[in-house]
Design a protein around this nucleic acid. Sequence first.
DNA 1: TTGAAAGCGCTAACAG
DNA 2: CTGTTAGCGCTTTCAA
Lengths: 347, 347
Amino acid sequence: MERASRLPTMRDVARQAGVSVMTVSRVVNGEPGVLPDTAARVELAIRAIGYQRNDMARNLRRGATGTQTVGLLVDDLANPFFAALARAVEDQARLRGSLVLIASSGDDLRREREAVQAFCARRVDGLILVPVAGSHRFLRAALDRGTKVVCVDRPADQLRVDTVAVDNRDGAMRATGHLLAHGHRRIGYLGDRPEIWTVKQRFTGFCDALAAAGLTPDPNLIRHGLRTREDAAAAVARLMAAQDPPTAVFTSNDLMSVGALGGLGPSAGRIAMVGFDDFALADRMTPAVTVVAQDPAALGATAAQLLFARIDGDTSAPRDLVLLTRLLVRGSGEIAPTAADRKSLTA
Amino acid sequence: MERASRLPTMRDVARQAGVSVMTVSRVVNGEPGVLPDTAARVELAIRAIGYQRNDMARNLRRGATGTQTVGLLVDDLANPFFAALARAVEDQARLRGSLVLIASSGDDLRREREAVQAFCARRVDGLILVPVAGSHRFLRAALDRGTKVVCVDRPADQLRVDTVAVDNRDGAMRATGHLLAHGHRRIGYLGDRPEIWTVKQRFTGFCDALAAAGLTPDPNLIRHGLRTREDAAAAVARLMAAQDPPTAVFTSNDLMSVGALGGLGPSAGRIAMVGFDDFALADRMTPAVTVVAQDPAALGATAAQLLFARIDGDTSAPRDLVLLTRLLVRGSGEIAPTAADRKSLTA
DNA sequence: TTGAAAGCGCTAACAG
DNA sequence: CTGTTAGCGCTTTCAA
C-alpha cells in the first residue's frame, strides 16, 4: 500500500518507453521536434507509472528563470482585512502562473525575519510584505541578490522599495473632521500600538484634525496599545464610565471599531463614532457605523502587479502608490452631542 | 545596482574562505566537527558575500527528507472562516519548520486540480484540502507517490483520506429543532449550492428535523444555490414578500446569515432566525443572532496535526474526526411566531 | 529527430 | 577535522 519509497523520475519513464531522458523531457515540456509516435509512447509510459515533473530539480537547473513562487507576509491572516488582501495577491499570482507562500508575522520582527529568510532560501522570485515596525536592513542582502520586494499597507523602515498604501493620516483627519463638523469637542481615540506605522499615521491625523479646529488632544480620552477587540471593548467602557466622558470616539481600525461596539453595548446609539476600515455588518448595526474605508483587495492586487512588473525587469526608481479612502456616512458618525453634553462643555 | 546576475553559492564561499565546499556545508548546517577557527573564517566569508543556502538544491539532494512545505487549498481565502482555518494551519506548520503554499479553488474543480498539481510538482510533503464537489480520483496518483493528504471541512469524493469536519447534519438539526421548539412551523431555508457536501448535509439535517416534528419541507420556503450575501438578501426579501411568508428562517452558512440580515433590514426582529456558523458581530445585532457555531481554527489545527502525523510516518487507517458544534442562544432564534401567524397557520 | 555529456547547488558516504 | 567523489532530477549544449 505504501510504496512511497521513491518517486518516478524521467529515467524511469525513459526506460519504460525505451527512449532517452532527453526525449522524455521534450515531451513533458511540450517542446517540438519529437515524432508523434515517440511522444505517444512517452505519454503512455508517463501515465503508466504516474510520473510528474519535479519542479524543484527543474528550477535548479534552469537557474535564472525563477521559481514561479512569491512570498507573502501579512500581520495576521485571520484578520479579514489581510485575508482579503492575500486573496487578491493569490489571484494575481495565479494569472501569472505563480504560487504563493504565506506567513503571518503576528507583528513580531523576529518572526517576520524568519519567514522572509525561509522564503528567500526557497528562492522566491519576489516578496510582498506588510512590514512590522523596526529596521528592515536585513532585507538589503536579499534585495542585492535580486529578490524583488514590495511593501503593502505600510512602508518598511530603512528600506526604499515599492510601497502601496492609503493616506492614513488624511483618512483619520477626515474621520475626525467629520465628528468635529457634527459639533463634537470631546472625541475619544482608540488605537493599536503606535509603533505600527499605520497606527501612528492615523493618530497623527486625529491630532492634526483637532489642532485645525483649535483643540488639543485630551490624554484622558486617548487609549493606545489596544491589541484585541476585548482590549478595545474594555477601554471604551472605562472611557464612558469616567466623570467627563467623550461625546464621540474615533476607532483607528476595524478591530477597535468592533471592540468598541461590544464595549458600548446598547448605549452605542448615544455616542458618535467613526472608524477607520470598513467591516462586515457595519451597515447593519444600530446605528450603522460610519467609517473611512479602504479596499484591501485593491491594495493586494496593486502590490502584486507592482511586484510582477519588477520581476519582469522593471528597474525604475521605487514608487509609492497611494490608494484612495472613502468616507461612508451611515449614521453613527452623525450623532450630535446632546444638549446636556454641550452645556457641560461650555460650562 | 542590479547585480542579480548569479546568486553566491557554497563554491563562492569556499573559495573566499579558502576551504572546501564540504566545510562550508558543515558550517551552514551547524554540523559538528569543524574547528572553531575554520568555522569563523567561513562565517565571515558568508557574511562578506551575502550567501544564503539554496533550499531547493538542498531538498533535491536530500531526497527522502522532504521539502518542509505543505500545500493548503481552501474554497476562498477571503472568507473569514477559511482565513481563520488557514491561519491555524500556518501556525502548526511554523511549529514544525514547514512553509505553507496557499491557493483558493473558488469552488471550481479545475482550479483545485491545477493548484494540487502545482503543489505536487513542487514536491510538497503534504496537502490539506477543502475539496470541492466532484471526483477526486486524480489525487490517487499523488497519494500512491507518497504525498500525504488530509481533507478538512468536507470529505473528498472517491477518496479515503483523513478528514476532519463537524457533524453538519446534526448541527442543522439542532438549529432547526431550536426553531421548532419555539413554536415555528413555517421555516424558511437559505442555502448555497447543494452540490457542496456541507450544504447538502445541512439541508438534510434541516429536512430531518422537520420530519421528526411531523412536517414536510415546503418548496416555497426553500432557496438553494445562493452564492453571495446579495443572493441571500434578495432571496429572503422575496420569501418575506410572498403571500404566506415563513415565521422563521434557517440560514445554512455565515454568508447566508449576513445576507439575510441585510435583506430583512429593520424587520429582522419580527422573524426568528438561526444560522450555521458564527460570524463577527453576530452578538451585537438587534436581535443578536443565534447560531450553531463551529471553530475554524480548531478544524485547521487538527487537520495540520493529522497531516504532520502522516508525514512522520503514521500509516494507520484513514480517520474521520468529528469536531463539535455549539448552539449559541442569543435572541434571534427565540422569537416566537406572532398570534396572527399562529392563527393563519391553523386556519 | 534523438541522444550523450555536463552541470545547476547541494549533501551522503567515504577517504585521508 | 577536512576534502574528494558521486549523484539528487532535470535541462542545456552539442553531436549523431
